[in-house]
Design a protein around this nucleic acid. Structure first.
Lengths: 126, 126
DNA sequence: TCTTGACCTAGAGCGCACTCTAACCCGTAT
DNA sequence: ATACGGGTTAGAGTGCGCTCTAGGTCAAGA
């Protein structure tokens, strides 16, 4: 699997894939006879996991910590788990504040709806 | 209320307050005799609302759209409402994907826990 | 009077996460 | 043979959202 195909499958751009390799988020890729990157499809498991860390808001530097631990093998399991648990707690917090803000947003929107039903608005709120 | 106090109350830095005024997110502040910004406490309602848009991930350029509409007065209500509704939908989506990712994260963490109970790990997953 | 601390401006700098450019190489189809 | 559609590199550029610096003003307290 060449870089273009990995790009399609993973949703990352080829630029990003090379960038991730440069900084150590992706393992240094094997090369084919012509010197081009040649990926084992199992890389997709890793890119998908990275994507999940990313959508949950983990900064690259933390993914990097995880990636380095992973490369050091099984004895880093405890540390990786701790990293993930800390991250999970962060995600839960984010989820809570997001939920709270959603409620406020709904109330705000309702107030606009109300305002349109009466036909004037006092503008004392944002 | 001077800029330092607003900073304390709003959680924004004085840098950020001046920056927000520069770009139009905050109204151009009144000045006291000495030429220093002098805020009416009602500004806090607006900064709090901005904070909510920010924590829900609205980019500054959209907050700016909202702020400009607000300055144009009551007849922009419909447009503001539409903006907010679009944003709310975005937040709901984000909430859903975050929730899904949280589940995956939990499963992953559980797998680390299992792995530690057995005393070896096959490392076929991230 | 002098110092301190908070304020002012214009503009530069920063950290993040990409994203692109320029110049080159390689294999395949025409 | 040559053109094309991939790939390669090092390094520069981008967009976002601040954050800070330099050099100055101003009011109040010792």
């Amino acid at each position: 699997m060449k870089i273009g195909e990995l790009a399609k499958c993973s949703g990352l751009s080829t630029y990003t894939i090379r960038y991730y390799e440069r900084i150590g988020l992706l393992p240094v890729a094997e090369r084919d006879a012509g010197g081009q990157r040649d990926y084992d499809p199992s890389i997709l498991i890793w890119t998908e996991f990275l994507g999940r860390l990313k959508t949950t808001g983990m900064p690259i530097r933390d993914m990097l910590r995880y990636a380095r631990l992973r490369e050091q093998g099984a004895q880093t399991g405890l540390e990786r788990r701790a990293l993930l648990e800390a991250h999970r707690d962060m995600v839960r917090d984010k989820l809570d504040t997001l939920q709270a803000s959603l409620l406020v947003l709904d109330i705000k929107i309702d107030s606009y709806v109300d305002t349109e039903q009466r036909t004037h608005h006092d503008e004392t709120t944002p």
